[in-house]
Design a protein around this nucleic acid. Structure first.
Lengths: 210, 210, 210, 210
DNA sequence: CTTTAAGCGAGACGGTACGTCCGGTCTTATT
DNA sequence: AATAAGACCGGACGTACCGTCTCGCTTAAAG
């Protein structure tokens, strides 16, 4: 559920573009530099100058292709979405949600995360914010299968809204770790998953009800 | 539950400070300017220069007293915490939580919020982040009474952990509106409150359970 | 012998510099502004800000190219050295020295001089001091011909050290007008020239004698 | 002939001043601090703040009593003039002048001098410039006796102008060491003295002649 | 296998904001 | 009532980035 998996990416071509050789190499270097800088110095360290220097590419080249830092982030995020991540299948709703939360917990509580930096960025660049939303929505869609399986097993009502349930399960983690910045609590992933599952079983997320 | 209520403020005095006349006026002007700028231009518009100009105070004065933007925000937040806010008492747990969420929903969904700006700031200034954490913890503590009342009424187990329940109720709102940036959904406050209350009734937040 | 004659300039190019169009215009404007400001406001009025504004060039551009006020002065001085000044040939040593001193007297006694400002600057910027020294040494070298001519005429011993003689002739003017700041005395140039010439005739500046 | 001898001083009193106890101590501390700072950090290091801190006196106290840095320097210089310095008597004009120059040479060529700092200051503060002029004129007057003795001995015409001769002897040192900043040349004091004496013997400084 | 133009390297510039230092003035609190 | 201490205003400094522009030079792709 984290966003640290880079991939190929896709920027809409308008006129005939050059894709081979130098251009491709430049893009790869820049994308790599952005990721590295975000990890090392956070969003504030992600200056165009620093990216250019690290990528061994000229400043103006970055401006030409990505316009600004938001563009860089959007490119990196879209690249990160290009993977084959799938939620685990543990056999129970609570187990699935707990596994999800565990993964998320590790991504968020391990020091200065790429994810943290991206969220920080999303508050300052509309482009980055949109890319991050796209990324998360994609993840939630992939997780819908968890709810479908639970419904199939009869754990929750068939009308249960997957997104609402998933948000209820994961939101407390983001809230505690990113916003409230409380000390990491290893029991948190499980507790949040359990509470969401319990609510789901009572039909609190049944579509008719919300 | 939002942070738009300024008040008198309290920054720990180390040596004997001047409190009368000019100094007090300067501080009031600056605090006011910070709030106004955050609302108008967001965190990125909150430059020391802009604050100084708006407060009709010299740049160096701001640097001398508040050091940087983080210091300004911390001061403003501590001032904002100095109010008498209390959660409403509707007679039921679900009602109380819904009222809470409704208030929060309005604060978060009305365009570029002061709260949004503060959160953005918290990702860039450790000082601001700490102040924001303090502010929220204070709010959660004030809300603990909601859970106590529910326990007294027998709605939830006596061992129910107030903070975990409150976070479960409110976190989805922060998540949807601030991070996922989905379109505001008026049903959201109620749904989140209802789900949290349902989970609480099953004992999902009982201390023994985590 | 004064330093008010600007010219084309020559700063050692390390890498290939841009000489055409904008860059050249910027340099010309800045050099002009420095001269004008020195005359109008003296060294203390020569702030980078003022230069930039007057030259209609941005502050940062000045810092980029000239680093600081010392760099500006060095550039201006090196430019000023790029002229074709030559000492007059009056037919006698005393006449030549007097002509020299007269020129110097006028440069030094006419109100707040560029020269005065440059000397003031030389006490604060090593770079400016070095440039000023270069400028003066260049002038003394050009004046050596005066002594050579006198020696050829048999007025002074052939071994007469040109520099020592020239310094003896001109130093009193600098001393009185710049350091002692006595009221300008029109007889001064002639008197100093005459005394130096007299000493030279006695062989006081013969190299063998030190 | 240098200005490194501090003493009691005298700044023109306007209204009745306090002279006892604290005020006197404050003045002594400040004057001492000014001298020390000039030596250590030159004129540019002579900030009111630094003086105040070093003298262990409050900033505003310095402003009250000395107005600005120029005032401080004037006070220090006037204090320095309050000594009993007298030129040596070697028996010959050339010897006296050489002794004078030797003393001056040492004061000027020993690294960053107090004298150097004072001259630098004189280019930036009218008050300091006036005080420095006063100081030097006082010194030249005390040296007039050297010329008188030479005249009495018949070495030079009786009408020889003392000041012109003395300036001719000393000016080259100031010029070389302060303005041209050439490498110190131990032969310089003697050479300048000898040349001036030679010129004087030819009557070049006789009053009738200029 | 040439063209040819897209893309890159390079240097400079205007501009905003930063955080600091210092000069001077004003005002509060102390004695 | 005087003065010491603190706080303020204002100017300048030097720096870091941002985003733009104008040149040439490379080089990938089209003919």
């Amino acid at each position: 559920m984290d966003s640290s998996t880079p991939a190929s990416g896709n920027s809409a071509p308008t006129v005939r573009r050059r894709t081979g050789g130098r251009s491709a190499r430049v893009r790869a270097q820049v994308v790599e530099a952005v990721g590295a800088l975000l990890l090392e110095a956070g969003y504030d360290g992600l200056t165009v100058d620093a990216v250019a220097e690290r990528a061994d590419v000229h400043r103006t080249t970055v401006y030409r292709r990505w316009r600004d830092v938001g563009g860089l982030l959007a490119d990196v995020l879209d690249a990160a979405a290009d993977d084959t991540w799938q939620p685990a299948d543990t056999g129970t709703l609570e187990g699935d949600l707990t596994a999800l939360n565990q993964e998320l917990y590790e991504a968020l509580s391990s020091g200065p995360t790429l994810t943290t930096a991206l969220i920080a960025a999303s508050f300052r660049s509309a482009e980055a914010a949109a890319a991050l939303s796209r990324f998360w929505e994609d993840r939630y869609e992939r997780c819908a299968v968890v709810v479908a399986r639970a419904a199939a097993r009869g754990e929750v009502p068939a009308e249960t809204a997957p997104r609402a349930l998933l948000v209820a399960a994961t939101a407390p983690l983001y809230h505690e770790l990113l916003l409230l910045r409380t000390a990491p609590d290893p029991a948190l992933p499980d507790r949040a998953a359990r509470a969401a599952a319990a609510a789901a079983r009572t039909g609190a997320f049944a579509a008719a009800a919300g």
